[in-house]
Design a protein around this nucleic acid. Structure first.
Lengths: 221, 221
DNA sequence: CATCACACTATCCTTTCGGATATTTCGACG
DNA sequence: CGTCGAAATATCCGAAAGGATAGTGTGATG
């Protein structure tokens, strides 16, 4: 399930923070989720976890509560605009590795996150036991991501959309007009309209707004 | 918070299942979430928790793994169509109380759930400690819901939307046309257009699709 | 080489959206 | 009682969206 690339020849082990316990910063907007996850991770006894509910709060916590050995960010959280938020955190956190926690498990999302320098990608669909393992894996300097989800996932949630339709759908979900999507993809507006129509059919959507919502609900974007 | 009467003064008025431990059925589509929550609740030692990842699986688990003293359902889960899913579970579970677990904490959603016979409503924004208390509260026969969230919630995630605008937004998010929204709310189409315009302004949305996505991202629907 | 699937383009036409502006009703407030 | 704001309604207009139908280019497949 796991896979790695390598990283940090630095030192095999975990921390950059002196000799204290290994420290985690966990940010998720649902306190029930972040606190139970924190409790679960802390149950091992070797981790100390600081929680925040927004990206800004997490960044602000770097100073007073830092330094940390690993930072985990929820991808759908106030302040995060997708991976932009991670970039902000990385800039603020310096060398401290940043991992992504997300309900979304689409292959290209995972790949984008890793490509953008994430230390790992933890889908919320993973078993809790794997979480412990993954966190320790990341702390050891490795990059963690769910290999099985990365491969293809051609079946279920694909909805039979072709690549171009996905790109158009992405624009739809951002609230762009056909004209704007066309410009972005270097297409004619009519072509975009065609894609919107076919893609809406495939998703059983009654119009572009519905299509965007369905895509959102199914993690297609 | 209201109360409800139930027989068996057995212990603290908790269980209907013979003499064993108190048993919970927890259904949430994110295994990381459900397992950590289960671990958190089970840490007290007095609860036995069975987890499932979909509504259908949860209903199917009633026979083989039941009976249960309390059932908790995630509101955003495959199989649940809002409160319809809860109704299905209630029919299948008979007298066993059913509570709702949800990322959404809108007052009217909470009220609808309670009105539909939920034993409680647990927003994922609640502290983990409150969760334990709330679960035990519900097990004792009381109906739990977050009183502070029920009152008004005039502040943060409100975005200054008026009730009517919220209703229109709801329709937007379902992909309805202005015409259809108007029919549903017994308004003229022009009025709906007005609301769409003002609501889009308040959300900084560039059009209806964008507004729907923003609303979705901010849990306004 | 014929065929097919896919992506793209083109026209034409109708419906819906989006925006501006003005008027009316109604309840709340001082 | 007058004032105010929310809510609803009424026209008007241009800009998008939605739908249908037809045609082009290209790469894969048999």
């Amino acid at each position: 399930m796991t896979s790695r690339q390598e990283s940090d020849p630095d030192h095999d082990g975990t921390r950059q923070t002196g000799g204290g316990p290994t420290r985690l910063l966990l940010a998720d907007d649902h306190s029930l989720v972040r606190e139970t996850i924190a409790a679960f991770l802390a149950a091992g006894g070797d981790l100390e976890i600081h929680c925040e509910g927004t990206l800004d709060a997490a960044i602000a916590a770097l100073g007073p509560h830092g330094p940390f050995d690993l930072i985990l960010l929820d991808l759908n959280m106030p302040g995060m605009n997708g991976l932009d938020g991670m970039a902000r955190m990385q800039k603020a956190a310096g060398a401290t590795p940043v991992g992504i926690l997300s309900a979304n498990a689409r292959p290209d999302t995972i790949q984008s996150a890793i490509a953008a320098g994430a230390r790992g990608y933890l889908p919320k669909s993973m078993p809790a036991k794997s979480l412990s393992a993954a966190v320790r894996f990341m702390l050891s300097g490795e990059i963690y991501f769910p290999y099985n989800l990365l491969q293809d996932t051609p079946g279920e949630d694909d909805a039979g959309l072709r690549p171009r339709e996905r790109e158009v759908l992405q624009g739809l979900a951002e609230g762009l007009s056909n004209r704007e999507i066309a410009d972005r993809l270097h297409l004619q507006e009519v072509t975009v309209k065609l894609h919107v129509k076919t893609l809406s059919r495939k998703l059983n959507a009654r119009n572009r707004t519905h299509a965007a919502m369905i895509a959102r609900d199914n993690g297609l974007i």
